[in-house]
Design a protein around this nucleic acid. Sequence first.
DNA 1: TAACACCTTTGAGTGCACTTTAAGTCAAGG
DNA 2: CCTTGACTTAAAGTGCACTCAAAGGTGTTA
Lengths: 143, 143
Amino acid sequence: MAGKKYRIGEFAKLVGLSTYTLRYYEDQGLIVSQRDENSVRYYTENDIRWVGFILHLKGTGLRLNDLKRYVRLRAEGDRTIPERRAMLQKTKDDAEADIAELQMHLKVLSRKIDWYDGKVDHTIDDSESFHDYLQQFNDTKGE
Amino acid sequence: MAGKKYRIGEFAKLVGLSTYTLRYYEDQGLIVSQRDENSVRYYTENDIRWVGFILHLKGTGLRLNDLKRYVRLRAEGDRTIPERRAMLQKTKDDAEADIAELQMHLKVLSRKIDWYDGKVDHTIDDSESFHDYLQQFNDTKGE
DNA sequence: TAACACCTTTGAGTGCACTTTAAGTCAAGG
DNA sequence: CCTTGACTTAAAGTGCACTCAAAGGTGTTA
């Protein structure tokens, strides 16, 4: 029940961040650590979950500044839930837009790879430019 | 047939880059421009396609240094096609891995949004933590 | 004639997110 | 006793990709 306590070095390995970064995040107000009688930081299971969660948010493209705002809102209690929800929704929408764009770029890249393959096995004429080759897929616009 | 010529300002708007960035890319060897009799840069339709293509590569996460390498290889002719193909393939694989990771983060984010909604309409108990709420989805691991 | 868009080189500034260093202290473990 | 790992503050450095400024030049358009 008491829960294991982790010092910064161990905790860093656990969450996949450097001790530098953990202290930096604490400076920035993203993490709060507890201290023992010698003012040595320690972290608990709860902190693992919290860091895990902020890494999910970071992973979807949320910047540190927005993350700070999120943390500030959280500290203000349940009445800021609508605002926090809206932040997450926007982050989600943005990330989904990013994925869509990435996939669009990937499509061209894939076709370039196909074109190289065609050049190598001579199913595509040596003189055919990639641009001309790409034209045949221009139903893409209507997708 | 001759093809329109664009000066840097017009070209910049066309491809969505600043004139600064275009000159910077030229310094870096990513773009080659032609010059008129007054050494004023001009660009053609072909350049639009080339910039378009490198922006696709950038859009999939290729860094300028790698892009430079790609351009150097291209200048060496068809015998570097296998290496270029391999570069693109790796870029593609990396981008797909990024997408997968992003989607994983998005899943957690979506669940947090659902959890907020549950709190607001009281279908989730006030005392239930997000961590506990998340547990019920832990078939996710086996996906 | 003046404004405007371009040209040059060189170097500095920006923003983000760390990352490291310096210089000193402290306490537990082998 | 010495190493290891933690602590502090403040500041500098890193990497990337621009972005802008300074200072002086040329050619076209109103």
